[in-house]
Design a protein around this nucleic acid. Sequence first.
RNA 1: GGCGGCGUACCCAAGUGGUUAAGGGAGAGGUCUGCAAAACCUCCAUGCAUCGGUUCGAAUCCGAUCGCCGCCUCCA
Length: 475
Amino acid sequence: MKPFFIYNTLSRSVEKFLPQHPPEVSLYSCGPTVYLPQHLGNLRAYLCWDFLRRALEYNGYTVRHVINVTDVGHMTSDQDAGEDKIEKTAREQHKSPLEVADFYLKLFQDDLAAIHVEPPLVWCRATEHIDAMIELIERIIAAGMAYVTPSGVYFDVEKYRGENRAGRLSRQSLDEQNAAQRLEHSADKKSPHDFALWVLAQPHHLMQWDSPWGRGYPGWHIECSAMSMKYLGETIDIHTGGMDHIPIHHENEIAQSESATHHPFVRYFVHNAFLTGKEGAKISKSAGKFPLLSDVIAMGIDPLAFRIFCMGAKYRSELALSDDGLRAAQSNLDYFREFARSIPAGAVSNSSDAEFSCEYRERFLDALNNDLNTPQALAVALELVAEAYRRGDYNIWNTLGAFDRVLGLGLAETQTAAANSAIPVEIQALIDARTAARKSRDFKRADQLRADLEARGYEVKDNRDGTTVYQLRHA
RNA sequence: GGCGGCGUACCCAAGUGGUUAAGGGAGAGGUCUGCAAAACCUCCAUGCAUCGGUUCGAAUCCGAUCGCCGCCUCCA
């Protein structure tokens, strides 16, 4: 078994991956706040983690994947009071917070399904884990690392800093962070760096729960700590998230978690770089306009082409969204599918692949295990198919099938659909008529019949050996 | 101001010390074909922002310069 290497933000270096309890791997991904549709940049993040998960599974690991859903406590940064994002949308749309969260979570899950992101073992929602959060906050208070005030329970960052543990992820000392602005509406905080574990005295907040400190709601960071511990244990193998979460969210998660448990919270922190907009600008929800999967589909691009598009760049590199890039990915998708549809039945049932495929298997695994080098893995898969065509030896179906466990393009389904698609009688009649027309060299009529067939969704191709193949489009 | 990242062909993008700088898309030519499609073949960066340096050897390490971007406030 070849070792898997991954970049760990904690050490700022590529490390050999060693889970605590092989072959099991605990994987926690910071999930979205469900108050708006998730844009393509969000989707890229979950594609990155899907590639990670599938690569680990390809290596024989069993992955326990948990994704959280933030449906309370995530504040806007409006200077004034700051409003809960979910509640803000609820007000604007005249819905309840629960309706808003349900609606956008469903939308998100539908998008993930369209790009073949495997569902996690657990989707966990903040509002359904209030008890776990309260318990954890109690542990933090008991450890002397948090204090209760009339406006809320705050984590004592100064005290934590005394233990010389702050800033490990971001490599920034607290003094370097310009936190002056943050004091304004939280005079109870001992230090501007302190962050809320539990918020009190916000009567206008729609979502409130009883707690030992009074009615209120949880701070944003505590949910990830509480839920990852609940489902994956107090030390998890891999925690993923966007680069933007390194300096605040993940620092705080580490601080509060380790204060409570006194042992490491996460072994490998893995962060993805952003998808950038068409002008090289960052895509962000707060900026207002952002591209969605539905925009891609409206361009005539298959959602799975977006999957390939994202596979074409490393998770740690920024990726520039572009129409050309999406179309290039669509070409790749068509190429794989065309191979799957036209592969001879014998090559599908053959259990032993051509010898030349061995080298590709090795290169594919090496690419994945080298810090999840998906662009290289994709290149290997494309080259494998090209070589099969070149040699006229299509006995690579097992290898390609193995690759597709990571590529996630559903090529087996494409093949099955093409093989099982029955040609209706009236279509067969048109085909026969065209064949006859070609034989009598009435090409005008043959071309007319081809156009008819294409209008009905059938693609007509004349192969080298003179036969003609007909297949459903977009199988 | 502080922290961090990036700059590889027309476009996207691998490669981070050592043979001819992956792969895809676009483009050009060709094979096949009645035509087309598909597929395959050939061509497409003596050069990796610029200038220095280290080295037997650098896109890859170091320094400077220019340009772009992110974070430090909600964001994957």
